[in-house]
């Protein structure tokens, strides 16, 4: 769906965002991608939103481990430490 200037449509661009961020686009395609963003505020916003989403994902709090599971593992650890063969969980 290229336009008269051989450029991409927004619908195509949003499907290339991940490849772009990974640096996986070929040079020529990367430039066409950037050319589109240069004239399209919507897609520039989309890319920016994607970057910020990834940023928030990188700040997620570590998830708590189930207490019972943790206790079982500590028990297994103590058993192992004491030299016995630890029992498997199942």
């Amino acid at each position: 769906m290229s336009d008269a200037q051989g450029m991409l449509s927004c619908r195509e661009v949003v499907e290339l965002v991940t490849a772009y961020l990974e640096g996986a686009l070929m040079e020529a395609e990367e430039v066409r991608f950037e050319e589109h963003l240069a004239m399209c505020d919507g897609c520039a916003a989309y890319l920016d939103q994607m970057r910020r989403t990834i940023d928030v994902a990188g700040r997620l709090d570590p998830e708590a481990v189930d207490v019972e599971a943790c206790d079982r593992l500590i028990h297994a650890f103590r058993t192992w430490r004491a030299g016995s063969e630890p029992e498997s969980g199942s």
Partner: peptide, 12 residues
């Protein structure tokens, strides 16, 4: 930026 692009589209 958009103006330039639309003008080129129109010219095409």
């Amino acid at each position: 930026n958009v103006a330039g692009w639309v003008a080129a589209q129109a010219a095409a």
